[in-house]
């Protein structure tokens, strides 16, 4: 499991170079992604449903992202995009195509799984962003960080 978490950290850090993330934020972005993936792995070994596990670990990743963005005064997407990256259901997309090619009849199952995972990522971002906007509401609140 340690190898997998280290892998996710390295993957997110390397992906930050593709996205041209500002240098000073790359380490934090990598930690955000690794934290989300570590929680996902823990929940998966506890036999939790993949959708629920994605939601909870997505919440952790976007919680970290929101805190870091407020702390370091940068747009929140700088951390959210790398943070949720390991959770994006690339595996699901592969399994859909694979089962169509094998014609084993599992394509619809994998399609549902993939859609649920994508929806859960979206829900986790929505929940955390909503909470933070509720708690840190200012008069004339702007989305661009203007403090």
């Amino acid at each position: 499991m340690l190898l997998e978490i280290a892998g996710s950290f390295l993957a997110v850090v390397a992906f930050c170079f593709i996205l041209n993330t500002p240098r000073r934020h790359i380490l934090f972005a990598g930690l955000t992604g690794a934290a989300g993936w570590a929680l996902y792995l823990v929940l998966e070994t506890r036999d939790m449903d993949a959708g629920a596990a994605t939601f909870i670990s997505g919440c952790l990743a976007s919680l970290c992202a929101q805190l870091l963005a407020r702390f370091l005064r940068t747009p929140v997407t700088v951390f959210v995009i790398p943070g949720i990256l390991p959770l994006v259901p690339g595996a699901g997309m592969y399994h859909i195509v694979d089962s169509i090619l094998r014609s084993d009849g599992l394509a619809s199952y994998y399609a549902t799984q993939t859609l649920v995972a994508a929806g859960m990522i979206a829900m986790s971002i929505i929940v955390m962003d909503g909470l933070f906007r509720l708690l840190f509401k200012k008069k004339g609140e702007a989305y661009v960080d203007c403090r």
């Binding site: 190898l3 997998e4 280290a6 892998g7 996710s8 950290f9 390295l10 993957a11 390397a14 992906f15 593709i18 993936w37 390991p86 690339g90 595996a91």
Partner: peptide, 11 residues
Amino acid sequence: VVTAAFALTYG
């Protein structure tokens, strides 16, 4: 590097 690291990430 991304793809190699993701291979490790997904077991």
